Amino acid sequence: MASPTSIKLDDELKVRVQTLAETRRRSSHWIMREAIAQYVEREEKREAFKQDTLRAWEEYKQTGMHLTGEEVDDWLKKLEAGEDAELPACHS
């Protein structure tokens, strides 16, 4: 269920939205909903990535387990070449 929400746009942005809507044969409302949905999805993914990174950093600080950049590059090169290479084991 959708509920109405108001948003204030400056005149320039409002015209840009209206122009794009006309070009795409969509309503201004559709353009704004789509833009907000895409923004929220992108930012949720960005936040999830940030949280994963912080968890990985904390785990590294606790365990010291890691791979070097060279080890990862070598593994990725094998995968790129079509080899069925397993991820190297982490070490301290």
Rank of each mutant, 00 (worst) to 15 (best):
M1H: 00
A2Q: 08
T5A: 07
S6P: 05
S6N: 13
S6M: 13
I7H: 00
I7F: 05
D11C: 06
D11F: 02
D11S: 05
L13D: 03
K14S: 04
K14Q: 08
K14H: 10
K14M: 04
V15H: 13
R16K: 14
R16F: 14
R16A: 15
Q18F: 00
Q18G: 01
T19R: 06
L20F: 12
L20P: 06
A21R: 00
E22W: 12
E22P: 06
E22I: 11
R24D: 14
R24E: 13
R24H: 15
R25Y: 00
R25K: 02
R26S: 08
R26G: 05
S28C: 07
H29T: 10
W30R: 12
M32K: 00
R33I: 00
R33G: 00
R33V: 01
R33C: 01
R33Y: 01
R33W: 00
E34S: 11
E34D: 13
A35W: 10
A35T: 04
I36C: 13
I36M: 14
A37G: 05
Q38A: 04
Y39L: 11
V40K: 03
V40Y: 06
R42D: 14
K45N: 15
K45I: 11
R46M: 13
E47G: 03
F49T: 05
Q51H: 05
Q51N: 06
Q51L: 04
D52A: 10
L54T: 05
L54E: 08
A56Q: 04
A56H: 03
A56K: 04
E58C: 05
E59I: 10
K61L: 02
Q62H: 09
Q62N: 12
T63C: 07
T63F: 04
G64N: 14
G64W: 15
G64Y: 14
G64H: 15
M65E: 09
M65Y: 07
H66R: 10
T68Q: 03
G69N: 05
G69A: 05
E70G: 08
E70R: 06
E70A: 08
V72F: 10
V72T: 15
V72M: 13
V72I: 15
D74V: 09
D74F: 05
L76Y: 02
L76D: 01
K77S: 02
K77H: 03
K77P: 00
L79V: 10
L79A: 04
A81M: 13
A81E: 11
G82E: 05
E83L: 06
A85L: 10
A85Q: 06
E86V: 14
E86S: 15
L87W: 07
L87Q: 12
A89K: 07
A89T: 11
A89W: 05
C90M: 14
H91Y: 11
H91E: 11
S92M: 03
S92D: 07
